[in-house]
Structures are given as C-alpha cells and as structure tokens.
C-alpha cells in the first residue's frame, strides 16, 4: 500500500488537551501527543524546566490527562528515578515513568542526573524533545544548538561555534537497553520506537527533534517539513541503538543536500557558501561514522 493509512497506526486516545500554551506550529506538543498516545493513561510524566513547563498550563490547569510532576531544571532523571522506586516499592510495575525534558535540561544542566540514572539503568523512559536552544527563556544557545546558528547569546557576528553534542552516542555509551532518535515529522517511526521502548525495562532514551518556528525562524506551517528535511538530509538521522552496541537506521534517507534546510531558516541567514560546504562535510562525516557503527553492529 503506497499511501500509508497512518491513522491505522496511531492510537486514538488523546491525552493532551487543547488550549495548551505552545506557540503556533510548535513541534513539542505534537511530540507529547504522539508519545502519550502510545504510552497510554498509565504514565507519569516528569517535567523539568523547559517550554513544556509553560505548555502544560498554569495552576490550576493541566493540558495532560496523566499525572505530571514539574521539577527543577536539572532533575528530570533523578525525580523519575524516585517516582519509579516509589511505584515499584508499592507494587506498581505497569505504570510507565517518563521524564520529558528539553535539550537544555538534557544536554546541559540535566546531563549529570541523566547519566547517573542511565548508569543505574533506572526503569524509565527519558524523552528529550530537542528544539536546539533555550527557547523558553528566549532562544539562548545550548550544547544542542547546531554549528553556525544564531541565538540571542550567539549573535550573527559570532554565531554558535561548536558542534552539536552527540547525545545519542553519549547515551549509547551508557549501554542502556534502548536509545533512539525520532522526529515529529515521522509519526509512524516515532510511535514504533515508543512502543518498543515501552516494552523494555531499564533506561530508555528517545531523542525527538522538535522544530521551533520562532526559534529557528521559519513560518509556522513549515514545522513538519523542517523536521522532514532534517531527516532526509541526514542532519538528524532516524536510528536506534540497542544495549549501546547494536546500531540501526530506522529510515532510509535520500541524503538530500543540507542547503535547502539551512536556507529555509532565519537562524542560519548569515551563513556563507563556505559555511554551507562545511556543514555538508560535517553531516557527511557523521553519516559515515554512523554507517560504520551500523555496519559493525553485531
């Protein structure tokens, strides 16, 4: 069947309510919707400081139909560990505990707690929805911000000068049972990974690329397209790693040029042709690295 009837793959339950406070076109609520559709009602969400702190709604509201614990920026993995322990000790092993953090809370301030929990192989799902900067505070760079990007702390005269941290490799290096990337632009792939993650015990890590119209500077309706481009041009390959050693691509990509993606976003407006070549080379090099990881997987 050439036309994928995706509705047959997407659970109907809706655990996110409208009226949430995400910007128009935001990928983050979409990511949450999709993930919760698969995880279901028996889920407890841990939310450190991030865009979702706002999206979830102010007191006394909630945009989720599952319990949600807001916590301090760097603590998602630790709080999730605590909740998991509490559930286990009271005999509830069905409920999924999900930490849901942005890139700042994962790549930067929350990395220690995440590393600790992953090393202990805490039984929870950690989702990083990555919009590639501190968006909630107004677009400041994080270690997930790609090279060359403008942010309010990396002005155009001196844009982000380092490469995006390779969080997937970091998590794989913890030898957790499951680590994967996903993107809201590919719901079926994302749901499949959540389904798989849900069935595994131990620390599971899902890195979801979540395009951000105001932060990346593109128009609202382009959100899905932007994620699609990032996957197809191999800036954000969709893959999974089992037990830290079995690497696998989950989606064929065309290896499109990065240029249309870069040019479509205002945050890269200042980049030169040489910069474009540099980014392309970098993407190619990382792709080759990943191909080697896949090829050498047992």
């Amino acid at each position: 069947m050439s036309q994928v009837m995706i509705k047959e793959l997407v659970p109907r339950r809706e655990l996110v309510d409208p009226g949430h406070l995400a910007c128009p076109g935001c990928g983050a609520p979409l990511a949450m919707r999709l993930v919760l559709k698969e995880l279901g009602e028996k889920t407890i969400v841990v939310l450190p400081a991030c865009c979702w702190s706002i999206i979830a709604g102010p007191y006394p509201q909630s945009s989720l139909h599952v319990p949600l614990y807001h916590t301090a920026f760097e603590t998602a993995a630790a709080v999730a560990s605590g909740i998991r322990a509490a559930l286990d000790v009271r005999g509830d092993t069905d409920t999924t505990v999900m930490a849901w953090a942005g890139d700042g809370g994962t790549f930067d301030i929350g990395l220690q707690a995440l590393s600790g929990a992953a090393e202990r192989n805490e039984d929870f799902l950690y989702v990083c929805y990555d919009n590639e900067a501190y968006m909630n505070t107004g677009i400041q760079r994080s270690s997930a911000t790609p090279w060359g990007a403008w942010t309010t702390t990396t002005p155009r005269s001196q844009p982000q000068g380092t490469k995006k941290k390779d969080i997937l490799s970091i998590m794989a290096a913890h030898r957790i049972p499951y680590a994967a990337t996903a993107c809201v632009s590919y719901p079926a792939d994302l749901l499949e990974k959540v389904r798989k993650a849900k069935s595994i015990r131990g620390t599971r890590f899902l890195h979801i690329l979540s395009p951000c119209p105001p932060g990346w500077k593109f128009s609202d309706e382009q959100s899905i397209e932007m994620g699609r481009k990032a996957v197809q041009n191999r800036i954000f390959p969709l893959m999974e790693v089992e037990d830290g050693i079995r690497w696998r691509f989950t989606m064929e990509t065309d290896g499109d040029r990065v240029e249309p993606y870069i040019k479509a976003q205002g945050r890269f407006r200042h980049l030169t042709d040489e910069d474009m070549v540099r980014i392309q080379d970098e993407v190619n090099a990382r792709w080759e690295y990943l191909e080697r990881m896949v090829a050498s997987s047992p």
Partner: peptide
C-alpha cells in the same frame, strides 16, 4: 500547593490566530 484541578481547554487559544 500548585496542583491542577482543571484542563487548559478553558483557554481560548484560538484567539491567537
């Protein structure tokens, strides 16, 4: 404490468009 008692559904975010 800050604990929810309702949904964000009451927010008419449609007015943004």
């Amino acid at each position: 404490v800050s604990v929810s008692r309702g949904s964000t559904r009451q927010n008419r975010t449609g007015s943004w468009k």
